[in-house]
Amino acid sequence: MVPTMMLVADSSRDAHRREALCDLADAVARRGEAPVVSSFGTSDELESAVASVDGPLVVVPAFLAGSDRVSAELLAGLDLDQRFDACATPPLGAVPSIVGSLARRLGQAGWRPGDGVVLAADGAFDQDERQQLTSVARMLSRRVQSPVQVGYLDAWAPSVGDAVERLRRRGQRRVCVASWQLVDGAGHERLRELDATAVTAPLWPAGVVVDTLLSQHRAATARLAA
């Protein structure tokens, strides 16, 4: 029996973000690899959604490591210990295909060789997420052959705006922001307000996002079957 895939994120305060997440869930479901359900709300709604699924279950974060502190807290509060047939996967992080898609987004936004780059994240929920962000920045730097500075929207320093200005003080006239966001929403709107040369679009819609989420599900399915 193929485990149900439950995509999880918080969008309780952002209708535009919820719409984008639902679009992503529909795209995953259309692949036909597994039954797909979603929970894009509060912790109570997540617990209720999990309880409603009969049979094996794989919970897959519909957000990137370090991109969404609220969703990370939501997932961390989920207790699956009483279910032998259920597990959760970590959020997507330093995956080569995802970082490659982000590099392509930079080119589409107007990045040129030699431009400064800021990787814009929400703020790491834990040390593992922070390490993932460091790895993403290094991988992106190798792809664009330019140093990549990490900046944060919330909770951590430097802020994205400060990171942009820091690169400019170092002589970078053009500074582009690589948005470490899976879907559009209020966080991405804040990035558009920055005085940056260009800001990339969120990673979704891109087929690689669906591919990678399904890969997460397949790996977890194998662990459940072991």
Rank of each mutant, 00 (worst) to 15 (best):
R173I: 03
W180V: 03
C87M: 12
L224T: 02
T197W: 15
A201M: 11
C176H: 04
A9R: 03
R69M: 07
L75N: 02
T134S: 06
G32Y: 06
D44G: 06
L153E: 03
V50H: 00
P113L: 07
V37R: 01
R13N: 07
A137H: 12
I98R: 00
A198P: 14
V37I: 12
A178Q: 09
G151T: 08
L119H: 01
D122R: 11
E129M: 12
G32T: 12
A88N: 03
V144S: 02
R170L: 13
V136T: 14
V36D: 00
F125C: 04
A76R: 06
T197S: 14
G151S: 11
G171K: 11
G66K: 06
V199F: 08
A120E: 07
G32W: 01
V37H: 00
D10F: 05
D126I: 11
R192F: 04
M5A: 10
V150A: 11
A186C: 11
D195I: 10
S52Q: 04
D26V: 08
D126S: 10
G116I: 04
T4G: 05
L75Y: 13
D54K: 15
L167R: 03
R30I: 09
R218V: 09
V95W: 10
A157T: 11
A62D: 03
R170E: 13
L214C: 08
R169Y: 05
V160F: 04
A34M: 08
R112N: 12
G114D: 05
R142M: 14
S38K: 00
V28C: 08
M6F: 11
R69L: 12
L224G: 04
S97I: 06
P91F: 03
A219E: 10
A120Q: 14
S135V: 04
G151W: 00
V144L: 15
G100S: 13
D54S: 12
P61Y: 05
G207D: 07
A15I: 11
L75K: 04
Q131G: 11
T200G: 07
A25W: 00
V36W: 01
S135L: 10
W180Q: 01
A186H: 08
L213S: 01
S39E: 02
Q108S: 15
R142G: 09
A163E: 02
P90W: 08
